[in-house]
Simulated scan of single mutants.
Amino acid sequence: MVHSMTAFARVEQNGVYGTLSWELRSVNHRYLEPHLRLPDNLREVEGPVREALRNGLSRGKVECTLRLTESSSESALQVDHARAQQLIHAAEQIAQQIKQPAALNPLEVLAWPGVLSTQSVDSQELNSAAATLFSQALQQLKESRGREGADLARLISERLDAIQNETNVLRELVPEMLEVQRQKILTRCQELQVEIDPQRLEQELVLLAQKSDVAEELDRLTTHISEVHRVLKTGGAIGRRLDFLMQELNREANTLGSKAIDPRSTQAAVNIKVLIEQMREQVQNIE
Results as ranks from 00 to 15, higher is better:
residue 7 A to N: 06
residue 9 A to S: 09
residue 18 G to Q: 08
residue 24 L to E: 09
residue 26 S to A: 10
residue 29 H to N: 13
residue 31 Y to T: 15
residue 37 R to F: 14
residue 38 L to W: 15
residue 40 D to A: 14
residue 41 N to T: 10
residue 44 E to K: 01
residue 44 E to N: 07
residue 47 G to Y: 03
residue 47 G to P: 03
residue 50 R to A: 05
residue 51 E to W: 02
residue 51 E to A: 11
residue 52 A to L: 15
residue 55 N to E: 15
residue 55 N to S: 15
residue 58 S to D: 07
residue 58 S to F: 12
residue 58 S to P: 04
residue 64 C to M: 07
residue 64 C to K: 06
residue 64 C to I: 01
residue 65 T to Q: 14
residue 75 S to C: 07
residue 75 S to I: 12
residue 76 A to Y: 06
residue 80 D to L: 01
residue 86 Q to N: 14
residue 90 A to I: 03
residue 93 Q to V: 06
residue 95 A to C: 11
residue 99 K to W: 08
residue 100 Q to L: 13
residue 101 P to K: 05
residue 107 L to G: 05
residue 108 E to N: 13
residue 110 L to N: 13
residue 114 G to V: 03
residue 115 V to W: 08
residue 117 S to Q: 13
residue 119 Q to A: 14
residue 122 D to S: 06
residue 124 Q to H: 15
residue 128 S to E: 02
residue 129 A to T: 05
residue 140 Q to G: 03
residue 141 L to D: 00
residue 145 R to E: 11
residue 146 G to V: 02
residue 146 G to W: 02
residue 146 G to R: 07
residue 149 G to T: 07
residue 149 G to F: 00
residue 152 L to D: 05
residue 153 A to T: 05
residue 159 R to S: 11
residue 172 E to H: 15
residue 172 E to L: 15
residue 172 E to Q: 15
residue 177 M to I: 11
residue 178 L to V: 12
residue 182 R to S: 10
residue 184 K to C: 09
residue 184 K to N: 12
residue 184 K to S: 13
residue 186 L to T: 12
residue 189 C to K: 05
residue 190 Q to E: 14
residue 190 Q to C: 10
residue 193 Q to N: 15
residue 195 E to N: 11
residue 197 D to P: 05
residue 204 E to N: 04
residue 204 E to K: 09
residue 206 V to G: 04
residue 211 K to Y: 09
residue 213 D to Q: 10
residue 215 A to S: 12
residue 221 L to H: 02
residue 229 H to L: 12
residue 229 H to T: 00
residue 230 R to N: 11
residue 231 V to E: 09
residue 241 R to W: 07
residue 243 D to H: 06
residue 243 D to C: 03
residue 245 L to Q: 05
residue 249 L to M: 08
residue 256 L to H: 03
residue 257 G to C: 00
residue 257 G to R: 01
residue 259 K to G: 04
residue 262 D to S: 04
residue 264 R to M: 00
residue 266 T to M: 00
residue 279 M to R: 01
residue 281 E to K: 02
residue 281 E to I: 09
residue 284 Q to C: 09
